[in-house]
Nucleic acid binder design. Sequence first.
DNA 1: AAAAGGACCAACCGCGGACAA
DNA 2: ATTGTCCGCGGTTGGTCCTTT
Length: 242
Amino acid sequence: MGRAPCCSKVGLKRGAWTAREDRLLTNYITENGDSHWRSLPKKAGLLRCGKSCRLRWMNYLRPGIKRGNITPDEDDLIIRLHSLLGNRWSLIAGRLPGRTDNEIKNYWNSHLRKRLKKTTKKADDQPRKVITGKKIPTSQDEESANGSESKIKTGKIHIPKAVRVCSVSSAAKNTSTSIYEYEAWNEDENGVFCGFVSSSSCQTSLPGNDDYDNIMSLDEIFDEYDQLFKTDNYGGLDSLLA
DNA sequence: AAAAGGACCAACCGCGGACAA
DNA sequence: ATTGTCCGCGGTTGGTCCTTT
């Protein structure tokens, strides 16, 4: 029944990674690939849990990671994608070559959230747009809401959580693509479902190492997402995957 | 020059979906 | 069909560096 018991965390190292640990992890993954995180630390000679190894590899050691400041173009794209996707950091990161979800999340929390708070304060004083008779949540509404849910005056709109529908590899474009589906819906004050706000799909691509020749401009990326959110289900995706 | 407070970011934690037995 | 683990995600924490007083 089930798999072998999960490893005990007793005796495992925590905190900052040393150069030696980085070397051990990089060497092991280079030779054996980055799968089976649970058993990887032992095989690589590391006193870390698999989760810690995965995080270190994905956010720091993985080839193609872009270090350094976020460019103005990236900054702009993050803001616009966040307006579409909410806190779906992995999806946003998928559209920023070399950037990790953790880096974007940190950048958002330390830079953009404060900046947008200032700039949207005026906008929030203006009359709100209305979709299907409901008020669009403001930044203040989102601030007061817990996690991915945004409360609104007449009820609340659930910001969609991405559901990975399938994964497609494209050798020609050297990308691996995951298809996600979203559904946002309204609830009334009593938590009773009262209709969909929108239903959309989108994809995320992770270019191969040091090969970004085929990726789209940041503006094109945003337009693609924007269009996908305006189309029903997979209509927009078909053209992207063709 | 030193202490206090703020900003930044790497790493950890807990949750939930996917999947194996 | 059920149970338990693995994996990935988003939220949060805590250490370090920087700025202000």
